[in-house]
Each structure stands twice: as C-alpha cells, then as structure tokens.
Design a protein around this nucleic acid. Structure first.
Lengths: 105, 105
DNA sequence: TGCCTAAATCGATCATTCTCGATATATTGA
DNA sequence: TCAATATATCGAGAATGATCGATTTAGGCA
C-alpha cells in the first residue's frame, strides 16, 4: 500500500497536512493561486527545510500514492491535495483494519 | 506515528486483518478460545509463513503501536486486536490527513 | 539562441527496516 | 529438578529508505 508507506514518513505526512490550508502555511508564495493551482515545490521546500531534491522526491512519492495531484504551469509545478484519492485511501484503510464483524445486535 | 510505520509493512497489515476473523483464519488453533483469548504466536506464524522471531517481532511492533493487545496464558501469548486503539489510530489519521476546512456551505 | 530559474533525476552515503538463525527466558508437566 | 514447548530477544546480513549535492531537463524571457 503505497499511501501507507508514504505517510509513514513524518515530513510527508506533514506536507499533506500543510496542504489542507495553503493560505495559512504557504502565504509567501508569489505565483499562481494557492487554492486553485496549489503550492509549488520551492515554497514547500522552504517550509520543510530539506533539500530541493528531497522535497521533490517526497512530492513524487505522495503523488504516486494518489494523495496529491500536480499541475505544471510554466516553470512551476504546483501540488495540491487529491481529496478524492485521500478519501479512497482512508476508505480502503478502514476496510482493511477497521472494525470487522461486530455483532452489535 | 508508530501505527503508520507498523501498517506500512504488508505482513503486519495482513495480520491485523486476519485477526478480525480469528475463526476463519486460525481455525487450527488447539488451545484457548480464539475470540476471547486471541491467537497465539505459533499459529499466526504458520499462516504468515515467516520465521518465529520475525512474527514475534511483528506482533510486538503492532502492540507498541497500540493496534493489538497481548495476554500471556501459561506458555502461550495470545494476541488479539485492540479495537479501541485501532479506532483511536483511525481517528487520529482522519484528523491528520482527512478533509480539512471544506466549505460545504 | 543563450541565460536564468524551477523542478526532476542521478549517484552516493548513511540510517532504518526486514528477516533470519541462534540464544535466552518462561511455563508446564513428568 | 529436568526436558519440552512457546515466546522473546539478540546479532547479523541484505534490502530499502532518507537525504544530500550535482547534474539534467524544461520553460520563460531578453
């Protein structure tokens, strides 16, 4: 389960968390619309305080896990949450580990 | 988040899954009550087809993550799901990555 | 075309995880 | 107490993950 592996890393988990409120955590972004387009790599990198390559890789991981979407606009790549994919992941996890046959009769 | 790391391993995830229906997956257990006591290590090991030490370690990992409980009865250690802990984990995850400020107004 | 910036990929290193067999500990029963 | 069985822990090797700097790819603009 790619998403579980992706979220097992605290930084990746936090990035996904930050992306819930782009205006709050990435207000320094000059370009694009935070809500519509998403947040570009360099802005996330600044916040995460890791190298550019690491953050780029993390975002690719999150995308392959179906948790974020990317959109290339000019020279920037904007990332934003894939709410649909996140919902699917949570549902799948619920099915996998959530309560089984409870006899709440 | 210990639980996320624990579940990032497919075998550990599957063990937790199996434990939802002990009667179904561990019907070969001779000792104890599957539902009341849980499933002992050697029975899980047989099903997982990994070494005894690995399975024992996995179960310890799941326990430290708050996903299973153990009960020592004689020479056996029975493991069963910690439904309360699992619920807490799922809720925490929901808070951490679930939908943020949706303006469903 | 040529430079500048953004992002992605590559290659390497160090840390962590996976997994095993061997050993240690604990419990039961003769 | 001794032997047998169940489980836990230890130590090690291989595989994977984390993370970096360097390089490559790509777009924008003079």
């Amino acid at each position: 389960m790619l998403a579980l592996k992706a979220l097992a890393n605290p930084v990746r988990l936090q990035i996904l968390n930050w992306l819930r409120e782009p205006r709050r955590y990435f207000s320094d972004q000059q370009v694009g619309d935070l809500d519509v387009d998403g947040v570009c790599v360099s802005v996330i990198q600044r916040r995460a305080d890791l190298s550019q390559s690491t953050v780029s890789q993390y975002l690719t991981d999150l995308q392959r896990a179906g948790l974020v979407q990317s959109k290339r606009v000019g020279q920037w790549t904007y990332y934003r949450r894939d709410e649909e994919g996140i919902r699917r992941f949570l549902e799948e996890l619920e099915r996998a580990v959530g309560p089984g046959e409870s006899d709440s009769s």
